[in-house]
Simulated scan of single mutants.
Amino acid sequence: MAARVAALGWQGLGPALAGAATLLGGQGLGARVWLWCWRRNRLDAAALAALAYWRARSGRPRAALRWQGRCVQLRPQSGQAHFNLGFLLEQLQQDEAARLAFERATELAPQLDLAWFGLARCLERQGRLDEALQAYQRNATLQPWSPHAHAAMARLQQRLGRPEQAQALIAHLRGFEPRVAAALQQELQPRGPAPGRAAAHPLVGTRTQQEAA
């Protein structure tokens, strides 16, 4: 019992100790303090999450994934833990596993806007475009002044052959992010034939191929 109380005490001190170490000695020292805290208490989920973060920051996503996986095991009902896991899986291009992690995050924490955005990105890459639109919409509802979901939805609507919906989203975006809206309008503008060259009629090429045959 005394050991358990001591472990909980160190767990509570971890953020303060690591914060002070980072301030005084930089990120490397802060990471070492978190590792020291975890070694004193292997059930310290905050230390595991912090160590995953430091590994990711240092360009070691696979190592970060191992630490974050342990964190999820200790905090299976934490939406933030599942989101962080999904983020790392997405960085490693493991889209299906990332999608499942983001989905779990949205189930546990429906107000976690970034989880909806991550889920939408995975669904889009998997070709599940209508589902991706719904997830982007949830993100936009939670973050109405963020341009990212609106721009992503406009691109998807254009891709799905719905230019009117795409233009409506651009018009909405123009109200609070005019530069983003202008760039998006330019990006989605239909490309015409090159100057000085007439566009070939689709039947011309077909007829030529038939005659050549």
Results as ranks from 00 to 15, higher is better:
1 M>V: 07
3 A>L: 07
4 R>F: 08
4 R>K: 09
6 A>Y: 00
6 A>Q: 08
7 A>N: 05
8 L>C: 03
10 W>T: 03
10 W>G: 08
11 Q>E: 11
11 Q>D: 06
13 L>V: 03
17 L>E: 10
17 L>M: 11
19 G>W: 06
21 A>N: 09
21 A>G: 07
22 T>H: 05
23 L>T: 10
23 L>C: 04
23 L>A: 15
24 L>I: 10
29 L>I: 07
29 L>S: 08
29 L>E: 08
31 A>Y: 03
34 W>D: 02
34 W>T: 04
35 L>C: 08
40 R>T: 02
40 R>L: 13
44 D>K: 01
48 L>H: 01
49 A>G: 09
51 L>D: 03
53 Y>K: 11
59 G>E: 01
59 G>D: 02
60 R>M: 06
60 R>D: 08
63 A>F: 00
64 A>R: 00
65 L>E: 07
66 R>M: 04
69 G>L: 02
76 P>W: 04
79 G>A: 08
82 H>C: 10
82 H>E: 05
85 L>N: 03
88 L>D: 06
93 Q>L: 07
94 Q>S: 09
94 Q>K: 09
95 D>R: 08
102 F>I: 02
105 A>P: 05
106 T>V: 11
108 L>S: 06
109 A>N: 04
113 D>G: 12
114 L>S: 08
117 F>M: 10
117 F>N: 02
120 A>R: 00
124 E>M: 13
125 R>M: 11
128 R>L: 15
128 R>Y: 05
131 E>R: 12
135 A>N: 05
135 A>Y: 05
136 Y>G: 03
144 P>T: 06
145 W>A: 15
146 S>C: 14
146 S>R: 14
146 S>Q: 15
147 P>I: 06
147 P>N: 12
148 H>L: 15
149 A>F: 06
149 A>P: 10
149 A>Q: 06
154 A>E: 14
155 R>D: 09
156 L>H: 03
156 L>E: 03
156 L>T: 09
157 Q>M: 15
160 L>K: 14
162 R>K: 15
163 P>W: 13
163 P>S: 15
173 L>G: 09
180 V>R: 15
181 A>C: 13
183 A>Q: 15
184 L>M: 14
185 Q>P: 05
188 L>I: 12
192 G>W: 10
192 G>A: 13
195 P>Y: 04
196 G>R: 00
196 G>L: 02
197 R>F: 07
199 A>K: 13
199 A>D: 07
199 A>W: 12
201 H>D: 14
203 L>A: 13
203 L>D: 10
204 V>W: 11
207 R>Y: 11
207 R>D: 08
209 Q>S: 08
210 Q>Y: 04
212 A>V: 09
